[in-house]
Design a protein around this nucleic acid. Structure first.
Lengths: 200, 200
DNA sequence: CTGTATTAGTGCAGTCTATGCACCAATACA
DNA sequence: TGTATTGGTGCATAGACTGCACTAATACAG
């Protein structure tokens, strides 16, 4: 399952990581807009052109490795147990994501930085929202595949939209209110429970 | 209440309208990305510089006059009747928005174009989502003001997030599936009903 | 071990969005 | 009629992003 990397792949990852770290450091120091891609590349000791070889846009350097959580939820849906009905699976999938967010994202500095920057930089906010939407669509598709007789495409979208919307909005509000990691996770959990009531 | 425009204001609106119409025509012909701001300005017989005098960014020329609906929902919340509880108000606010969308937005050609383009152009999608998010925050605040003993800030956000998320996602899915205006409105209504069950 | 195919990274020229600035000319207004 | 506003213009510029031709390192087949 684990491909041995090979020298080439290894170097590639190293530059990628260097770019991310350089970007984070510079953003922390001087904010998002005041840092150019050229400077990030420079700090990572690569050419500016190389930056775009690793990230489709400036924003994406901050969003590296955020697809993991979606996979978790997808797995939770695909690998559902025999007795589980729709509400149980949905809740488990969301809990999975919330738990991972609480474990990795919230305590690490990156999440805080991302949240802080996203609040003030429209371009970043926009890209983040886009990802949410894409993830949502994937989840909805998976859910419908698993419960074809109970959900059509629109119903599945509505359900997932409600979940993600509720969790996202309450997390954001909790963050803005100054809640710590635990408070945020708790807010997300309550949002899941709220929406779960509508499927029960 | 209605200020008489005056010549200057009148001309201003005319150029603005010319820009919008030129943009829509060109986008319909050749898609979003293949049309430059310079070309839009050219077609509207103004300088490229003038475009950015009227719209903060290229995307916004398609989103002109799309803030109206939020007001409707806010009014619905603020002007609630004596007997109405939380679920009733929320549902009425959302129904208000959905109805207006069905009346104005969906049948007009602009909405169809916007939907089509938004589905395929990330930049546009992103800007739209941002607007939704801003509207969401406003609605949540209004709702909490009206039911301070039943909802805290986070709970209000979760509720509104669920509503908007569900309605938005199902509308998008219905649109992408090729549903007509009636089908889309119906999908939105069902989404409202779904989430309403969790507050009942 | 040697020749060949990939491919990460480079450099450059160019496109496009967006902005600051000085300026003109039409309107508003005293 | 003179003065202040202000919509629109032209110019220069920054900065994100792309296509293209190229290099040099790695992978790999024989």
């Amino acid at each position: 399952m684990v491909e041995r990397p090979g020298l080439r792949e290894l170097k590639k990852r190293r530059t990628r990581q260097a770019l991310i770290e350089a970007a984070v450091r510079l953003f922390e120091d001087r904010g998002y807009d005041d840092v150019t891609v050229a400077e990030i590349a420079d700090a990572a000791e690569v050419s500016p052109r190389t930056f775009f070889l690793h990230f489709p846009a400036k924003e994406d350097v901050l969003l590296a490795g955020a697809d993991v959580r979606v996979d978790l939820a997808l797995q939770a849906i695909a690998g559902r147990r025999a007795g589980e009905g729709l509400p149980e699976v949905l809740v488990r999938a969301m809990e999975q994501m919330v738990a991972d967010a609480g474990d990795r994202d919230l305590p690490s500095g990156l999440a805080a930085l991302r949240a802080r920057l996203a609040a003030s930089v429209p371009a970043l906010q926009a890209r983040l929202l886009q990802r949410y939407l894409a993830a949502q669509a994937e989840l909805a598709r998976a859910l419908q595949r698993e419960f074809p007789d109970r959900l059509d495409a629109v119903a599945a979208s509505a359900l997932v939209g409600a979940m993600v919307g509720a969790v996202g909005a309450s997390a954001l509000t909790a963050l803005q209110r100054g809640d710590g990691p635990d408070g945020v996770r708790d807010a997300m959990r309550r949002a899941v429970a709220l929406v779960a009531r509508s499927v029960a």
